[in-house]
Design a protein around this nucleic acid. Sequence first.
DNA 1: TTGAAAGCGATACCAC
DNA 2: GTGGTATCGCTTTCAA
Lengths: 342, 342
Amino acid sequence: MVTRKEVALQAGVSESTVTRVMNGGYVSPSVREKVAKVIEEMNYRPNLFAQGLRTKRTYQIACIVPSIDNPFYGEVMQGIEEVAIEHGYVLSMYSSRVVNKSPGRSFFSGRNDAVILLSPGESRGWLLRDLWEAHMPLATFWDWETEAPSPSVSVDLRIGMQAAVEHLVSLGHRDIGYIGYMNPARAETDRNPRLTGFKESMAAHGLRTHPDQFQYTADRGSLDAGYHGVEELVGKFPGLSAIVTSNDLLAFGAIRWLEEHGIHVPEDISVVGCDDIAYSALSNPPLTTIAIPKREVGNHLMNLVLSLIESRKSHHDGSEHIQVPIELVVRSSTAVKRTNTE
Amino acid sequence: MVTRKEVALQAGVSESTVTRVMNGGYVSPSVREKVAKVIEEMNYRPNLFAQGLRTKRTYQIACIVPSIDNPFYGEVMQGIEEVAIEHGYVLSMYSSRVVNKSPGRSFFSGRNDAVILLSPGESRGWLLRDLWEAHMPLATFWDWETEAPSPSVSVDLRIGMQAAVEHLVSLGHRDIGYIGYMNPARAETDRNPRLTGFKESMAAHGLRTHPDQFQYTADRGSLDAGYHGVEELVGKFPGLSAIVTSNDLLAFGAIRWLEEHGIHVPEDISVVGCDDIAYSALSNPPLTTIAIPKREVGNHLMNLVLSLIESRKSHHDGSEHIQVPIELVVRSSTAVKRTNTE
DNA sequence: TTGAAAGCGATACCAC
DNA sequence: GTGGTATCGCTTTCAA
C-alpha cells in the first residue's frame, strides 16, 4: 500500500502538501501539478482508517433490511444506493434476522455514519434504543403504526387500503378477507394502518366484519405465509369473494393455493396485493396492488440521513417525516363479483 | 465515545491491561474481573478505525451483486451473511451497475478485507485487474464460461441445460427455443456454458438448430427482457413448442407475454427456467427450472474468502474451485408436446 | 504558500 | 503478569 509519506518523498514535498493537494488546500499551481502527477502514478489512495480515525467519518451507511429476498427491499436499496454513490457513500447491509440474534449489538457505530432501518419490526425495541444511545443518525422506512420514532419516510397505507376496499366494493364484493402480518405479542395494542384502513373502509361501506375474516401471519410477508394463510382463511370463512393482503408475496402465495384448489383468480375470488414489486405486473394473473414508489422511498431515506449527518445531529431533535404518495394499480387479479348461480 | 484510556483510568490499570482483557492476554483473574466490569459498565467498544489502522483488518467483506432486485442474489447473500456473522464479519454491498460507472474505482480496498463477486459480467475486465493489483482476496460466483480467474464456486450449467433439453425431448419436443443473456461485444468468443450445453444436447438428440431459435438479451436477466425476448423469438421462429431460458425471471416474463397472446403454458408451449428462485415454486404455473442451491453457494463463497484471509494470501496462487451440484426440478410449466390437429 | 508537530485510539513489543 | 512506548496513516493547527 502506498502512503502519503511515500508520495511526499517521491514528489519532493512535505506530507502536508500532499494532503492539501488531495483536499483542495492552498498549493501553488506548479507544485499541485507535480504532486498530482505523482499521486496518479503511484495510484495513491488515502487510508480510510487513518482518515476515519481523525475525522470520525466513515462514508458508509448501514442498511438494515428484513428478508433481503423480498424484491421490494432490493428496489428500495437501489434507491438508497443511487443517492449514496452520488455523495461518495457506500452501503453496508444487515438483515434484521441476524441483527436480532447478534451477540454484539451495537456493531453499527464506529463503522457507519448512519443507519437506515427498513420496516423496523421486532428489532424496534432494543435496536432503536441502542442507536439512540450511540447518537447514531437514523432514518426509517415506516409502514407501520402511525408515528415513527425518527426522521422517516412513510406511506399512508391506511389510505391505500381504503382504496383497495373501495375498488373491491365497486366491483360488487362484500365479503372481503384480509391476510396480513401481525406481531402476536402486540396484537391488540398495534395501530396497524393497513388493518385500520381496511376496517374503517369496510365500515364506511356498511360492511360488517367478523374476526374470522382476518388471517394474521407470523412472518412479515412471504409466499409461504400467503399460501398457508389463505388455506386457513377460506377454511374458517368460506364465503369470501375477495381478499386483501398486506404485501405482494402474500398475495402470490395465496393465489397459488387458490389455483391449486380449483379456485380461480379473479373469476372466483379477487385478490389485491400491496407493494407492486416488479414481478406483479407480469404475474399470472397480473396483480392488482397498492403501488409504493420504492426507488423514491430509497432516495428520500438516503437524503434524510445525509442531512442528518451534515447537520451533525442525530434524530433526537425534531423529526422530519416524508410521506410518499401511493396508489392502487388495477390489473387482472380483481374482477366483478360473480353472481352465484349455484 | 468511551476510549480504552478512560477504561484504564477508571479501572486503575494501564491501557495495555485493558487491551489484554479485551483480546484474551495474560491477566490475573482478579484484575481481569475488575476491568471486565468497568468495560461492561462503561459500555466500551474498541474503535474500529484505530483497530483497523493497526491490524489492517476490517472484518468487512464487500459483495458485488448485479441487480439486487433479482431474488436469486438475495438468497445467495443470505448464505454469505450466515457464515459471515458466525465469524464476526459484516457485509458491504455494491451493485455492479454503480461499480461500473464509479469514478473512484478501487473503493473496496481499505474498507474491506475481501470481496465476493457475484456473476461478474461486464465488470470483469478492469475490476478483476484492480482487485488483483490491490492484492485483494477475492472469490467469485461463476456461472459463466468455464474457467474462473479466482477461487470460486460455480455450477455446471452445461449439465443443467442438458438435463433441461433432455427433459423436453422426452416430452416429445423437437423445436426448442433458447432465450438468454449474451454480451453482444463478445458474442462469438464467449464460451457460455448454458448455450454450449443447450447446443450440445440438441445435437446429441439429432436435433438441428437454426440461429433463429436463439434469442439473446442485452441484460442479464429480467422480466422485461423475457417479455420482449419471446416476442421476438416466436416472431422469427413460430414453430416452437418449448423454450429454455437462462433464468427464472426471463421465463416469467416470457410466460406472461405468451399468456397475453393466447399461447398457454404448458399446453401450447413448455417453458423451463434456471435458478429456482423462491417464487418459482408458487408461480402460475409453477416453473420447471434448474435449481441452484443458493444458500449453499453463499456459504461456500464466504468460506472461501475466509480461508483466503486466514492464510493471508490473495487469489493469485492456485485457485480453489467448488462446484455445487444442480438439478432440474420438474413442475408444471412443461408438458408433453401437444399433437397438432390443425 | 509550505513544513513541522500534535494527536486520533488502538496494537505489539519491550522491559520490569 | 503488568506497564511504557513506538507506530499505524492521516488531519489539523500553528509557525515560518
